[in-house]
């Protein structure tokens, strides 16, 4: 078997940086929903989805088109959404953004923020609608507001991680 031009360590760093680090970071962000608090309203922004989207916007070809299925399922199980909601919506998002990719000519920071925030808001409202017996939509507002405010922070964390992911 050909060993190629890379050493063992370099090959591991490549796989780690290209595949494992983004996946693990998304899963860890989903696991923020395991914070040990009992609250009256949903307050935790969907960090898993936010990290997933940030990786998508940083590197449009990084995620394979099917990766929303396992990552979305994990997020559904962790967050308590209806099982299948995340699988379906994350996959549809990837397809939608692939379709939109070349149609958007200019991109800047505000654009990344606004499209990310719009996607997260639509996702939260969709997940709320899929819940069989759901409370008034006002109960979603704190969560959506927090997601909008924290999205730039998630973008910064992802970008910092992106700079370091191949250096292990």
């Amino acid at each position: 078997m050909s060993r190629g031009i890379y050493s063992e360590h370099e090959r591991f760093a490549l796989i780690w940086g290209a595949r494992i680090a983004p996946t693990i970071s998304t899963m860890i962000a989903s696991m923020f929903a395991w914070a040990p608090f009992v609250t009256d309203m949903p307050i935790m922004p969907p960090f898993g989805l936010m990290v997933f989207l940030c990786w998508r916007f940083l590197h449009p070809t990084m995620w394979p088109i099917w990766v929303g299925l396992p990552l979305g399922l994990f997020d559904d199980l962790v967050s308590g959404h209806v099982i299948g909601a995340g699988m379906l919506s994350w996959t549809l998002m990837l397809m939608l953004f692939d379709w939109l990719e070349g149609r958007i000519v200019w991109r800047d920071w505000m654009f990344g923020w606004s499209i990310g925030v719009t996607t997260v808001t639509v996702y939260l409202i969709g997940a709320w609608m899929l819940t069989p017996i759901h409370p008034s939509i006002i109960t979603l507002l704190p969560q959506i507001l927090l997601a909008i405010l924290l999205y730039p922070l998630v973008m910064h964390v992802c970008a910092a991680l992106d700079n370091r992911r191949f250096r292990i």
Binding site: G68, L69, V82, I83, G84, A85, M87, M95, P132
Partner: peptide, 16 residues
């Protein structure tokens, strides 16, 4: 795989 998975996921949602 993505399309089949999305169909399965929507069936799961409907089942719920």
């Amino acid at each position: 795989v993505a399309v089949l998975g999305a169909i399965t996921a929507s069936l799961l949602v409907v089942a719920a």
